[in-house]
Design a protein around this nucleic acid. Structure first.
Lengths: 234, 234
DNA sequence: CGATAGTTTGATATCCTTCAAAACCTGTGG
DNA sequence: CCACAGGTTTTGAAGGATATCAAACTATCG
């Protein structure tokens, strides 16, 4: 089942013909390798990308080559409706893992939105949540130390992965290098390594070959002072 | 002239009757004191607030009382269209200075949006820019040191204030305490004080009794590696 | 099995925080 | 117009979190 529909169902239930319309748009499917850049900063495109499998990220690169990841995209996430309203991308989108991506022509998307006000609303709902996540990431970077920051991120990704049915048992696939994590959290990979060591030795997580297990999600949420309100789950 | 119209004109020119409709909504005007909370986290409201004068901010408060400011609102900024789609606020909005605010009933706003697709689009354009600003703030927090971070913020606010006609000569009113700045940048007010001292002694700014003068905006932009692309100015 | 990318560890340096006190505004009432 | 109060800013000294650099170690994949 299409993970986008799974996600949007968190907003409302869709009539079957809406669902069918949505599915029909996803017929141009590409399997791409980690590192592939879907959209570059400054560019514009006439396609919307829907992640079906794998992880991607929004990121910006500074003049000296440092990179800040500003969002993770997981299956069901859409990039970018924005493009219709803003002229150019102010950030890039790239794959963090091998991934399969549906490419939807801009015009098809616009037609769908016109035909179904419900889907239109749902898509905006989804971008408002992206914005809420961004705010929480800013709180994370601004106020929490490395230990709690990483713990908080793990809680968020656990919930987001759960929503699209990708949590199996106690854990999920987290296809990130420590470098990726570092660029997300505004830390160095060296320090990320040390913090992960501490999270492990505190018995909170197991992270091995890109599989993250959270031993007790509620406990980790308490430690991270994680309040899921900002994800607006139902 | 309504600062919202000034701002939205950065997107397209509006036919006079659209402008008139918009102005007519702003008849319930309130003058409020600094510190006033417009919307609290967790609440929901049936009003949209439009800032006409003064500064406000979006912020979140942590369990131990620390505060992270996640956005500044200046004249022409709107809070919150979101509320129609998301059920509750995941952050609060409060006044940083004395301010005058127009309160627009939700239903009037919805009617306006229905009547004018152009205004609808413009409002979404505006929230997408808010999101872009949020991304840049995250880059700021994650990658830049205190000196460049504050310099970068000053460049942004200079441009945003300029867009709504509030830059007079070389400077503008910046009604923030150093504590406010600290909570925005993820720093302590002590450190903000030291950084401001350095910005002053480097001859870059004058900041006295809430008036900020940037001596050479282009120079400051170079120092801060400020690229205005994310503001999507025309 | 070797090459390459990713992770871990240690030593040292830096940026920023904390705590505490002094100085300075700014507005208010006498 | 002065004095005083409360909030804000400045300064100093010391401590802590994270960065940097460099090297060893460990996965992973052809």
């Amino acid at each position: 089942m299409n993970p986008l529909i799974k996600k949007l169902n968190g907003f409302t239930d869709f009539p079957p013909d809406d669902v069918e319309r949505l599915v029909r748009l996803c017929d141009d499917i590409h399997v791409l390798k980690a590192g592939h850049v879907l959209i570059d900063e400054g560019s514009c495109t006439d396609k919307v990308f829907l992640l079906l499998e794998g992880w991607a990220c929004r990121y910006k690169v500074l003049e000296d080559g440092r990179r800040q990841i500003v969002a993770f995209l997981i299956p069901g996430d859409l990039c970018d409706i924005h493009i219709f309203i803003l002229k150019t991308m102010d950030h890039a989108i790239g794959l963090l893992s091998d991934a399969t991506v549906a490419m939807i022509p801009k015009d098809d998307m616009l037609r769908l939105i016109e035909q179904s006000p419900l889907i239109n609303r749902a898509l905006w709902w989804s971008t408002l949540i992206d914005e809420a996540i961004l705010r929480e990431w800013l709180v994370n970077s601004g106020q929490r130390d490395a230990y709690h920051r990483i713990a908080h991120l793990f809680c968020e990704m656990w919930l987001r992965m759960k929503r699209v049915g990708l949590v199996d048992g106690p854990g999920f696939r987290l296809p990130l290098t420590q470098e990726d994590l570092a660029d997300t959290m505004g830390l160095t990979s060296v320090h990320v390594s040390r913090v992960l060591k501490r999270l492990r030795s505190d018995g909170l997580i197991t992270l091995k070959s890109k599989q993250l297990e959270i031993h007790d999600v509620h406990h980790l949420m308490e430690i991270a002072h994680f309040d899921p309100g900002y994800l607006h789950l139902t």
